[in-house]
Design a protein around this nucleic acid. Structure first.
Lengths: 216, 216
DNA sequence: CCATTGCGTAACCTACGGTAGCGTAATATC
DNA sequence: GATATTACGCTACCGTAGGTTACGCAATGG
């Protein structure tokens, strides 16, 4: 079922080889993570020697960057298309469905996006990939919140909540033994989010219980 | 502010050394991930040589296991305490607050729990650490759903949605430039979840838009 | 027949997990 | 107080894996 490219498995045109390596890289990065994936194995699975990978991507990081970039583009395009029109409610459910559809179609890509940070070893922390997405959603949410008369500063909270919701459910969904169809899951999520947002108090007051402090 | 154990920084009693190594390991695993963290650096930061780590934990995996186990215990205890009593609504908000409090108090531990899987290299995928939590929540939810007359099979969806929500918001919260107090964030999350759950239709019907298919 | 493209061989070198064996400080025992 | 015993720790090393590179060969197209 994997692509039987051409008649000759031996030599491939550069573009095809590139595509193949990206695909293999995506799969391996997904199941092993960046650090635990070796260029050797990537090359081996492509029936190719290591230097090929370097020729095409300049190294492990380069390949990883390409993989991540493609996935980001893919999911961003899907979701942006889904939220581009319709009522707010439709946009919400559309976004959830687009997300889940992406998860369904590209489970490996999704896993890569969920996994830990790229090899950038700067001092600070770098936001996970899903983070960017949440920020984009945050932008949309700020607008919606403003027009609806809610506290705009709370928008990022809900944006990250929603993205996290979908992301986690998506992860569970890919590994569930008896996964319901995407539409059902999306409708549940959207219902939860929508109803939650609709009936949101303007200013939720904490009903503070005892706040646990660290026991030594 | 870190513990000034005894007068002599040179030699430490076994228990103290152990604790120190766990702490250092937690921090490093948090910021670098498992694979990218070297025993050498752990030892170096503890002003100790590598064999010490091996002596106390049997190796890298051993230390990692201890770190993870402690965090799991910590967060599980906090949350279970929070949901042990009170009205459902209080339990929900209490759980969110407990989670965020944990995140606040032990950001490194939280980062470790969020990061990718342990070094177990069995064929299949292993559930992330947050996954267990979601499953526990799923158990509670199944019960609640049954008593409330909702579809029990949808419980895991909402369980993972809730955990993902809190986890993602928690992550954002630790890195936010101007983070609101935990109580406020928790109340927002709890409000979203609670209102969403309360006004949930018994059987949400998907208002299916065009479902995006992969464009080749 | 020659150039360009695609690729393999064979290393290099660093880093890291793990281990063996040897001190040295503190405590116990006589 | 001297000596044995234990607890704690270090230096030095091994094996290997993995990223990266230098160089040379085979196929393809004009």
């Amino acid at each position: 079922m994997p692509a039987a490219r051409t008649s000759k498995p031996g030599r491939l045109p550069a573009a095809a080889r590139r595509a193949q390596l990206v695909e293999i890289g995506r799969r391996l990065f997904a199941e092993r993570g960046y650090e635990a994936t070796s260029v050797e194995e990537i090359a081996e699975r492509a029936k190719v020697s290591k230097p090929i990978v370097y020729e095409h991507f300049g190294g492990k990081e380069g390949l990883y960057a390409v993989v991540v970039d493609r996935e980001i583009e893919h999911i961003a395009a899907s979701i942006e298309a889904a939220v581009s029109s319709g009522s707010p409610r439709e946009r919400l459910e559309g976004a959830a469905l687009a997300f889940l559809t992406y998860v369904e179609e590209r489970p490996d890509g999704f896993a890569v996006l969920l996994r830990d940070a790229p090899p950038t070893k700067r001092g600070g922390e770098m936001p996970a990939l899903m983070y960017d997405l949440a920020d984009r959603v945050g932008g949309i949410f700020s607008e919606l919140f403003r027009t609806a008369g809610y506290d705009e500063k709370a928008a990022p909270i809900y944006a990250h909540a929603l993205v996290g919701m979908v992301a986690f459910v998506g992860q569970w969904w890919t590994e569930a033994r008896k996964p319901p169809p995407a539409e059902v899951v999306a409708s549940h999520i959207a219902a939860l989010a929508w109803m939650g947002l609709r009936h949101l108090p303007k200013k939720p007051s904490p009903l503070v219980k005892t706040r646990r402090r660290a026991p030594a």
